[in-house]
């Protein structure tokens, strides 16, 4: 029954005088990958930031409407709790520079002051790194700082860090925009594997990426949700003219 994990209802967002998100309603499917695409400035990053309330860092942001996680309105929850349930990976890899790889993975626990036993930590680190496809590469350097890792490895470390908190939803905000093609391919493979365990919502400016890894795709244009459906349908027989134009222009 419960196919929808997260529902957005009549969401409006404005920053100062600018309306960034206009009356968006949509629901995300559990353990699927949903891609949100659109030209830059269409509000896709703002939309995912609203989902774990990271938009609150930007001053003068006004949000109306609701977002519910398993029928619980996240705007009535503590933002801190929301963020523990809905993890986020950012455009640029941002591991904590002063922490070892090991500590980076369990940073969410360390920083929140959540006590774990040694063995709990070890298993958590290993399983999270394994899920992020990084375990084999770093298992001999767990207690070194992450500075020597490549950009792609650092981004996977950030994914492991988010996974370690055992979130129900993982938000990826253009996770490969700062990476080289090889690392990008690696992360895309990883995303397909991760949907076994977690619901993924991914912002991308790359149409090819959306078509390769997502089950559902939403197309945003100027703050409006133009079209939302299975990736297959949206890419083959889009309903809306704007979607078609966007796709064809991008594909040449």
């Amino acid at each position: 029954m419960n196919k929808h994990i997260l529902e957005i209802d009549r969401l409006n967002v404005s920053i100062g005088a600018d309306k960034i998100i206009k009356d968006i309603s949509m629901a995300f499917f559990r353990k699927k990958v949903t891609a949100i695409m659109g030209p830059s400035g269409c509000g896709k990053t703002t939309l995912v930031r609203c989902i774990n309330r990271m938009h609150e860092l930007i001053p003068n942001t006004v949000v109306t409407g609701s977002i519910t996680l398993y029928r619980k309105n996240i705007y009535e929850m503590n933002p801190i709790m929301v963020r523990r349930e809905i993890g986020m990976v950012f455009q640029r890899p941002n591991p904590f520079p002063t922490m070892s790889i090991y500590d980076n993975v369990i940073a969410g626990y360390l920083l929140n002051g959540i006590k774990l036993t040694r063995s709990e930590k070890d298993t958590l680190v290993e399983s999270s790194l394994a899920k992020a496809g990084l375990w084999n590469e770093v298992k001999d350097a767990l207690h070194r700082r992450g500075a020597f890792l490549s950009g792609g490895q650092q981004q996977r470390l950030c994914i492991a860090r988010a996974l370690a908190m055992k979130p129900r939803v993982l938000l990826l905000d253009e996770p490969t925009s700062a990476l080289d093609p090889k690392s990008t391919a690696h992360i895309e493979d990883l995303i397909s594997e991760l949907k076994e365990t977690v619901t993924i919502i991914m912002v991308t400016h790359n149409i090819g990426q959306a078509s390769r890894v997502s089950d559902f795709t939403a197309f945003l244009y100027l703050g409006e949700l133009v079209e939302y459906g299975t990736t297959e349908k949206l890419f083959t027989v889009p309903d809306d003219k704007r979607t078609e134009e966007y796709l064809s222009r991008k594909f040449g």
Binding site: M54, F90, N94, F96, P97, A107, N112, C158, A162, M165
Partner: peptide, 18 residues
């Protein structure tokens, strides 16, 4: 960098701890 603050807040770490 602002990204460091985001990384921590994104993990559900309260502001004061961040």
């Amino acid at each position: 960098p602002h990204s460091l603050k985001e990384a921590s807040l994104g993990l559900g770490v309260p502001y004061y701890r961040t």
